[in-house]
Design a protein around this nucleic acid. Sequence first.
DNA 1: CCCATTAACGGCACCGGTTTCGGTTCTGAA
DNA 2: TTCAGAACCGAAACCGGTGCCGTTAATGGG
Lengths: 344, 344
Amino acid sequence: MAKVTAYEVAKRAGVSQPTVSRVFTPGTQVSPDKVARVKDAARQLGYLPNTLARSLNSGRSYTIGIVLAYLKNPFYPEALQRLSEKLSEQGYHVMVFFADNLTTDVDEVVEGLMAHQVDGIILASVSTSNDLTQRLRDLKMPFVLFNRGQDDPTIPAVTAANFEGGRTAARFLAAGGHTRIAHIAGWQGSLNGRDRQAGFVAGLNEQGLEPFAIHDSRYHRNNAIRDTLTLFDQPETPDAIFCGNDHMAFAVLEALRSTLGLRVPEDVSVVGYDDVAMAAWKVFDLTTLRQPANRMVEECVAMLTGMIDKTTAPKGRIEIESDLIIRGSARVPDHWPAQKGDRP
Amino acid sequence: MAKVTAYEVAKRAGVSQPTVSRVFTPGTQVSPDKVARVKDAARQLGYLPNTLARSLNSGRSYTIGIVLAYLKNPFYPEALQRLSEKLSEQGYHVMVFFADNLTTDVDEVVEGLMAHQVDGIILASVSTSNDLTQRLRDLKMPFVLFNRGQDDPTIPAVTAANFEGGRTAARFLAAGGHTRIAHIAGWQGSLNGRDRQAGFVAGLNEQGLEPFAIHDSRYHRNNAIRDTLTLFDQPETPDAIFCGNDHMAFAVLEALRSTLGLRVPEDVSVVGYDDVAMAAWKVFDLTTLRQPANRMVEECVAMLTGMIDKTTAPKGRIEIESDLIIRGSARVPDHWPAQKGDRP
DNA sequence: CCCATTAACGGCACCGGTTTCGGTTCTGAA
DNA sequence: TTCAGAACCGAAACCGGTGCCGTTAATGGG
C-alpha cells in the first residue's frame, strides 16, 4: 500500500513514466484519455508525487524556513500563524525552528535550513549576527528579518516604524500631563528596542522633558515586574510608564495593580507596543501602539517571494506605521487627534 | 559560492564522490587522512550535504509534520515550542501546518505532508475524521494525536486524563460548598470536551448534585463570554463555573468581573483546565487542572519516534493525570488533600 | 494530395546524494 | 613467507522524479 512510484502508475496505465510526471505537472500537454487513465491508476494505487524527488532536480523545494526566538510573547504565535497561512496560499511549506537567543546557535540552525534546500528564510525576532546576514547574502539565500532590523538599512527586514512609535507614545503621555515618564525598554541588543527607546526620548525632549528612568527589561516578563517594583521603591515615583512591548506591559500592569496596589490610569498611565489580541481584553484594556501584523506579514511574504522569483529587487528595510490605539490604561489628553479605525 | 556538491568537494580533495558521502555519514569507515582532506575541502568550499538527495534514497526525511488548529489558546504555542525542541534533539526537523477545523481540509494537509515524505505526523488539536486516521494506518504512516483522542482507544494519542480531571473539578467545587455549578464546556465534537464534561457530571452526581447548566462554548473566547452572560441573565444564577479550558476561563473571568461586576471567588468560583503559564498571572490567579505539557510532549515524541523506528509497538491512547492546581479563583474547601508540587 | 507544423509521448540524461559490489591494500596469525 | 580477513575506496546502480530531444501521428493550408 505504501510507496507507490510514478513508474508503477505508468505500468498500470500503460504509458511511460514521464507521462505520469506530466499529468501531475501543470502546464503540460497530455491527451485527455491518457490523463484520465493515469489519474485513474494513480487513485487506485494511492499515488502521490514525491516532493523530494521533484525538488531535487528543480532545485526548488517550495519550503520556507521560519526561525523564531520564543512564543511567550503572543505577538509571535499570531505572526507565525499568519505567515504560515500566507505562505501556504503561495504554495510554500513552512519549516519552523526555535533558536532562543542564548543557547542555540542561530548559525547552526540556518545551516540546517540550507541543507534542507529551503527556498527562503524568515528570521523572526532572532538576534542575528552581522556575519550571518552577510553569509546569507553571499550565498544568495533569500531572507527577510521579521520584527527585527539591523543597522544596515539595505538588509531586507520588515518592522514597525519604531522610532516614530516611541515618539508618539512620548507625545501622547506628555500631552496627557504626565511629567515623570519612565520606560520599561525592550532589549537594547535589538534595533527594535533601541529605536523605540530613542523615539521615546526624542519625543520627550521635544516637550522639554527628560525620561524619568529607563530600564532594559530585555522583553522578559519577570524583568519587567522586577524593574517596575524598583521604580516604585524610591522617594519619587513615575506617573506614567511606556513599555517596549505589550508582553511587558501586561507584567507592568500586574505589578502596579496587584503588588503595589496602584490604580491605572488614575495613579499611573501605561502604554504598550504591539497591540496583540490580549491588549483589548477588558482586564488589560491597554493603550498601545499597533504593530499591524497583517500588513507586516504581507510585506514580508511579498518581499521574500519577490526575492525568490527574482521579480523584484530587494527593497531593504520596510517600516510600517504604528497607529496609537487608545484604550483605558492611560489618561487621554483633552486635545488629541481622533483615533484611526479599530483592528483591521 | 552557492550550490556546492559532493562531486566538487571530491575533485578538490582528490577522492571519489562516494568517499565524500561516507565522510559525512556517521558509522562508516574512512581513513583519517582522507577524512581530513575532505573536511578541509568541504570547509573551503562551504559544502553542506543536500538533505533532499539524502532523503530520496534513504527513504527517511527526518522531518515530522505538525498539524495545528489555532494558536490563540496559549496552550498550543507552549506545546508547539516544546514539541519542536524535543524533536530537534532527536534530529528531526519540523514542518507546521494550520488547519482550522472549518475551512481547511485536514485530509488535504495530510496529503501534502505525505508527499513531502515526512517520517511521522503529529495532529495537535485537530478534529480528524475516522477516515483519515484509518487511511494513515493503512498507509503505515506513523502518527500521534496530541491533546485529542478518538473513541477507538487503539488510535495513538496523548491526552490528559480528562474524565478524571472533570471529576476532580466537580468534587472540588462541591466540597467547597457550591451548589449551583455550571459548565462552560469545550467543544462536544472533541473527545477532550466530552470527557471533561462527562467527568464533571459524574463528579457532581456522586455528590448528589446536578449541573446547574452546561453550554458548549466550543473553546472560543467570545462564545464563553456570551454564554456566561446568558447564565447570569436569569433569576437564578450559578455560584461556580467549571471551564473546559483556561483560555475560556480567562474569558469567563473577564465577563464576571468587568461586565457583570461580580467578585471572584466571593460571588462565583471559577475553575479552568490546562494550567497555561498565564493562569499563574496575578490578574487571573486561576485554579485549574494542569495538563502537564512537558510530559505530554515527551510521551508524544517517544511514541512517535518509537513507531518510526519500529522499536516499540504502538501503545494506543496514553492518558496523563491532571493535578488540580489550587490558586485564588475558587473557594477552597476546608478539608482538601494537600496540593502537589508547583510547575515542574 | 503533399508538405509544413504542431501535439503527444517515449527514451535518456540528470538532480545530488547513498548503497552495493568488487578490487586493492594492509594487517596479523600460521 | 603465505594467506585469511578486514579496512578502505572507486565504479556503477539506484532513489523518484523532471527536462530535453527526437520520433510519430494528427492537423491544416495551399
